[in-house]
Every structure is written in structure tokens, then in C-alpha cells.
């Protein structure tokens, strides 16, 4: 089938989409956007998190056809003309990236958190990231990165 979807601000038409495939598969395998990662395909790990009409969701659990007419924003769509998004910068600076497989999902989820909650406390950060698994870092540096991203954003505001 054909799916019309806006991805990272650009309208796209994707052909030959299988009716049972996920939005994650369509993004990665048909649209050349491998930033969102496929680690579990069952909603458990959050590596595939993207914005769908402004809400973070697991793209592995959205049928590609459900994205018809909707707006998707992936990790590839966060960086601006002047370089990395502040959340991405903070993950690099805080040493929150090891193998990097979990990182795209964590970045999108953190991006959403600090948009909604400019000064999240630790409980709010843990709650927001409860659906994102990391097998490498032990999470401490990830929490540091979220605090750093939030603090920098408040300074800039």
C-alpha cells in the first residue's frame, strides 16, 4: 500500500508498504532513516521512540498505515542548522553514550520531558525514562545528561 506521511517536516510518499509492518520498519528500511533503533519490537526497550503528532511513542508498535496523514519526528529531525540539539549535545558531554543503541530513543524521550517539565526532579526523570532500557551505562550518566540538558535549556531561555 501507499503511505503519505510528514517526516521531520517534509511530506513523503512511501510505496509498497506491507500492511502489517511497523512505522519503525518503514522508517528504517524504506525511508533511509535508521536513527530509530530496533531492539525488541515489543515496546519494552524504547529504542524506537519517535514523536507521532507530537507525542513520543514506540514506533515498533505503530502500524505503518496508522501514520497516514500524520507527522513523525525522529531523532534525525532534532538537530538544527546550527548543529546538534542541546539534548544530543548534553548526552555527548555527559558521557551518556556507550554502544549508543539506546541513545536515539532516550534523546527523543528526554527532548519531550524537558519541553514539558523545564526543571525535572530525579523522580520525574526516572518516570519519564522508565520505558527506555540501556544495557551499557548503568543510567547514572544518562541522568546526568538529562539534568545537564535541562539546566542549559533554562539558561538559554
Amino acid at each position: 500500500m501507499r503511505v503519505n506521511v510528514t517526516v521531520n517536516g517534509s511530506a513523503a510518499t512511501v510505496d509498497d508498504v506491507w500492511e502489517g509492518e511497523s512505522l519503525l520498519y518503514m522508517l528504517r528500511e524504506r525511508m533511509g532513516l535508521p536513527g530509530s533503533k530496533n531492539a525488541c519490537e515489543q515496546g519494552e526497550c524504547g529504542s524506537c521512540t519517535v514523536y507521532l503528532d507530537g507525542l513520543p511513542v514506540c514506533s515498533c508498535l505503530v502500524a505503518a498505515g496508522q501514520a497516514e496523514g500524520r507527522a513523525v519526528r525522529t531523532v534525525e529531525g532534532l538537530a538544527g542548522a546550527d548543529g546538534l540539539d542541546p539534548v544530543q549535545r548534553a548526552f555527548v558531554d555527559a558521557g551518556a553514550v556507550q554502544c549508543g543503541f539506546c541513545t536515539p530513543g532516550l534523546i527523543v524521550q528526554t527532548h519531550d520531558l524537558i519541553n514539558r517539565v523545564p526543571d525535572p526532579d530525579d523522580a520525574e526523570i526516572r518516570e519519564a525514562l522508565a520505558g527506555n532500557l540501556c544495557r551499557c551505562t548503568g543510567y547514572e550518566k544518562i541522568l546526568d545528561a538529562v539534568r545537564l540538558a535541562a539546566a542549559r535549556r533554562r539558561e538559554d531561555a
Binding site: 502489517g20 511497523s22 519490537e41 515489543q42 515496546g43 515498533c60 508498535l61 498505515g65 496508522q66 497516514e68
Partner: peptide, 27 residues
């Protein structure tokens, strides 16, 4: 029928189910 897909898509991704059609209710 598929709404949020958080049950249905797990079954499709793991080939537990292969329905003749999906009836998307999100529209």
C-alpha cells in the same frame, strides 16, 4: 481491529497472528 497497537503490533511483529486485514480505528 487496531487502536493503540500496543497488543496487536507485538503479535504481528512476532508472527503470532497474521490477520486477513487490519481495521485501524485511530482515524
Amino acid at each position: 481491529p487496531i487502536q493503540g497497537g500496543t497488543d496487536v503490533m507485538v503479535e504481528l511483529n512476532f508472527d503470532v497472528r497474521r490477520p486477513a486485514a487490519l481495521l485501524d480505528l485511530t482515524g
